[in-house]
């Protein structure tokens, strides 16, 4: 049954993508097309990730999500953040996840389609319901004319080091990174006792 649903799923994804692109083009022109493309990339990647049976495919599909989010950052004028997103997520975290995939056993039987589809229906339904409620009642104070987005990278560096700004969270983040990395190394390290080859005992 799984294999039969594979094609309809991807077909549905293609239709949704086309719909998104069309809706973007009709509402905001070229920028709308770009928005539809990145949205399709983000949501499609994550949907494939949930859907796919193989962890490797899921991990690679996640690359689409991260790239899409980076594109959305570009659209929002956050160039530096988009680059950092690509560098850290696609280059770092995704590689890390792939290592995890490689170091753990494959288990192709663990996916229950009913659970995935049920969960998706439930969650998307909930989101749709909340969205419909919110969209009708809440108004966000948004500027009518958006200012030119700042593209200077040095503003971020100044923000980090400004005593009025984010110097304390910055230092804390540095600390957390250091500790977390040391802790990660410590946790993942194999103990000396584990390094003995069990076959050596058998031979003896």
């Amino acid at each position: 049954m799984d294999d039969k649903l594979q094609k309809p799923f991807y077909a549905l994804l293609g239709v949704v993508t086309l719909g998104l692109l069309g809706w973007g083009a009709s509402s905001a022109g070229a920028q709308g097309v770009a928005f539809g493309l990145f949205t399709a990339l983000t949501l499609g990647g994550s949907l494939i990730c949930v859907w796919e049976r193989s962890v490797v495919r899921s991990a690679f599909s996640l690359m689409g999500t991260f790239t899409g989010v980076a594109g959305l950052f570009l659209l929002l004028g956050a160039d530096f953040l988009a680059v950092a997103q690509i560098l850290i997520y696609v280059g770092g975290i995704l590689a890390l996840i792939l290592f995890g995939v490689m170091l753990s056993p494959p288990d192709l039987a663990e996916r229950k389609l009913s659970r995935v589809l049920g969960g998706l229906a439930l969650m998307l339904g909930a989101v749709a319901w909340v969205g419909s409620k919110v969209a009708g009642t809440v108004t966000w104070a948004t500027a009518d004319v958006l200012p030119e987005p700042s593209t200077k990278v040095d503003e971020i560096g100044v923000g980090f080091l400004d005593p009025e700004g984010y110097v304390v969270p910055f230092e804390l983040a540095a600390m957390i990174l250091t500790v977390a990395l040391v802790a990660a190394v410590y946790i993942a390290r194999r103990k000396a006792s584990d390094l003995t080859d069990p076959r050596a005992e058998e031979r003896a």
Partner: peptide, 22 residues
């Protein structure tokens, strides 16, 4: 919001820690 919903499904529905991470 939709990405969030899919992430929650990813955490809850799959029986693999890697998926939880993702």
């Amino acid at each position: 919001a939709v990405l969030f919903a899919i992430g929650v499904v990813c955490i809850v529905a799959r029986r693999n820690m890697i998926y939880v991470l993702m």
